[in-house]
Amino acid sequence: MNKEIKGVIPIAAAPFTENGYLDEDSFQQMIRHLLQAGIHGVTLFGMATEFYKLTDKERGRMLRLLLDETNNHPSVASMISVTDHTAENAISHAQQAERMGADSLMLLPPFFLQPSEHAITEHIRKVADSVDIPVIVQYAPLQTNVRIPPEVFLTLHEKVPNIQFIKVETQPPGRYITSLMDHSQGKLGALVGYAGVQMPDVLERRAVGIQPGCSFIELYVQLYQLFQSGEKKGFHTLFQKLLPYISYWMQGIELIIKAEKVILYKRGIIASDYCRSPQYTLDNIEMKMIDRFLEQFADELRNEGRL
């Protein structure tokens, strides 16, 4: 693999038609929009992809469409999330993604009915050991109630070296990242999701990348570039403008999924903001917030939609 896992790696949304069917045209246009926006990678089947609302056939089709785009891109890495609860199914999907040309995998540990730490770590080990591409373990204790100390991830890396990154979604994530860095002495890298709410802190703590949603990815790319170039004043000025919005939307997973889809729709990137039920319904005040957001960041978010 020669595509580096770093930088801004958005989670792709799952566009649907007004009738609730997968909208392949909108999905393809959205991916092409992201590839033109300066991202470093793109993740499919994260929570923001609503993987839990997709059929196996839809997942297969989305995987093919994404990899058709990223496999032809010289630098944008594909990251395919494997969310199966059983190791057998997870291994099958992991190996399929690798065969199709995925650059990396993100592995969500099993959490249904509270498996033991041994069962969880064995699942991670078996799935990661079944492929050769880099594996990112998604550590989201608030969503899964699975809690894993940093030293456990280091032990897993020593057993299976292609376990190379941890997506840290603790609240707050910063101190966990510091502990992870200290325990692994740089052997493990950290990525962070949660809409980048803690972006200033986690980048200072040596996180290698951010995995936000995809509806206003230009802002995250600009923020990352400002930070990497040492323009801290510009970074903090832009981040403080963005923070009130992402802080509000990240109060709930379904809330930010709906808000992101409305933004994608209003920008002309997807044809509908439809979400499959159960979903969050935005009220008038929340819709006005999105309009205000789009007006405030109009210069940064030049509409490139073609629908």
Rank of each mutant, 00 (worst) to 15 (best):
V168Y: 01
Y139E: 15
S215V: 06
S92K: 08
P110I: 03
M79R: 00
E286Y: 02
Q171N: 13
A119V: 08
Y245V: 01
K233I: 11
G186C: 06
Q171K: 15
R99Q: 08
Q29L: 04
A48C: 15
Q138R: 05
Q225M: 09
K53G: 02
Q143N: 15
G46M: 04
E260R: 00
G60Y: 00
D273Q: 07
Y194S: 07
W249A: 13
K233N: 15
P115N: 02
I136Q: 11
V197E: 14
Y224A: 05
M100V: 06
P149S: 05
L66A: 01
S272K: 04
T237F: 08
L113K: 10
A94E: 02
Y194I: 05
Q251L: 09
T83Y: 10
K266T: 02
T155W: 04
Q164S: 15
L301N: 08
Y265S: 10
A97H: 03
V82E: 02
P278Q: 09
H40P: 00
Q228S: 15
Y176E: 08
Q138I: 05
L188C: 01
F165K: 12
Y265H: 14
E218S: 06
P244N: 12
L154A: 09
M106C: 05
E169R: 12
G234W: 06
K258R: 08
F111G: 07
G174F: 05
A77I: 13
F111K: 04
M106S: 03
V262S: 04
H85L: 11
Q143D: 11
H93P: 00
R175A: 13
V192E: 01
P141T: 05
Q96V: 01
E231W: 01
E204R: 11
A298V: 06
A271P: 03
K232V: 10
E18I: 03
M79T: 13
M250S: 15
H93I: 02
P212W: 00
P244V: 10
Y248E: 09
M62R: 02
T55Q: 01
E158D: 14
P15W: 11
L108S: 01
I270R: 04
H93K: 04
I263G: 03
S247T: 15
